[in-house]
Design a protein around this nucleic acid. Structure first.
Lengths: 168, 168
DNA sequence: CGAATCGTTGAAAGCAGTCAACTAGGGTGG
DNA sequence: CCACCCTAGTTGACTGCTTTCAACGATTCG
């Protein structure tokens, strides 16, 4: 799923992509803090806020777990701020590919090809770029023999170089 | 205080500014997720992670409170991602001024002038801009009679217009 | 087969970045 | 007391990366 926020004029910033196992919507306030929609087939467990709060009530260990999730997400959000504010288009794309690969590896085990179920527009809105810049950067990375572009995925031909671009 | 992350080559992204009453360093992992240093005089309460964790242990209400703080910070981080990824220099500066003013108002009560204890470089690194662009944008807002520039602060001459630029 | 969507590519424009000079305070030391 | 220096901030000229505008290619679906 893609998680995003919109500006009044329609500009969109994707704040994250959710994969199986992820926990969404921790905002305790009445309104959620972002929108979400499915990119592919999705199975979700939905809890009403009130009953979930009640369920947690006398399970402090669960609350601690949730808190850890929130803190980890916060840390990721801060990493993404660095990317949005201080990295070039090429660094952004490389960092995205490496980070996305690492998440997929954790789910499905190692693989040289990285599935990209989201559109170029989604990637652009995640990285603070335009669709054209994303496309051009993919092409450039392919010319440089860093990746191979396949429909719906990319192949990491030179992971070391990609990781160097994403460094830190 | 300014809270920031550095890239290996020295580029800096400030992820937030801390004001009196703020709670820092929720990361439960061994390492903190960001660096922090004081801009002005500071009084801090420091807790060792282990003993603070023990203190919270049998105070679920406190843990819930901490969790709310983490979730709120996460939401703010996501708002800032929108700013970094999708807003122009002028929008960034206006949004920063309005947001900073609102935080100061909550602490000190209403005021037409907004104290800016941080340097232009700090503001630039917070907004994903360069110091020159921040300076030019301040000047432009002053020419447009939106703000007045004073040493160490600005005066919001036309808050409505500034808020319009920061919209949403 | 035509229409629509998604992605790629090219050319041109523009916003922000870079490089550099200059100003204004503030502190230091002769 | 004043010359000097150092830092922070501003401004200008120019560059360049990313965006914008537009056309084209590929794939899918009705």
């Amino acid at each position: 799923m893609r998680l995003y926020k919109l500006l009044p004029d329609g500009r969109r910033q994707i704040v994250g992509f959710a994969l199986p196992g992820d926990f969404l919507g921790m905002a305790t306030s009445a309104r959620h803090s972002y929108s979400a929609d499915a990119i592919g087939a999705v199975a979700v467990c939905r809890f009403s806020k009130a009953s979930f709060a009640r369920f947690i009530e006398d399970r402090p260990h669960l609350l601690r777990r949730i808190n850890e999730l929130a803190v980890r997400e916060l840390s990721q959000a801060q990493d993404h701020m660095v990317l949005l504010g201080r990295r070039s288009a090429e660094e952004k794309v490389a960092t995205f590919l490496i980070g996305w690969r690492d998440r997929l590896v954790k789910l499905n085990g190692p693989s040289t090809t990285v599935a990209l179920p989201m559109s170029r527009q989604d990637i652009a809105d995640f990285l603070g770029l335009t669709i054209e810049t994303v496309s051009r950067t993919f092409t450039k990375l392919e010319r440089d023999r860093v990746i191979g572009i396949l429909p719906g995925s990319v192949c990491l031909l030179d992971p070391a170089r990609a990781e160097a671009m994403a460094a830190a």
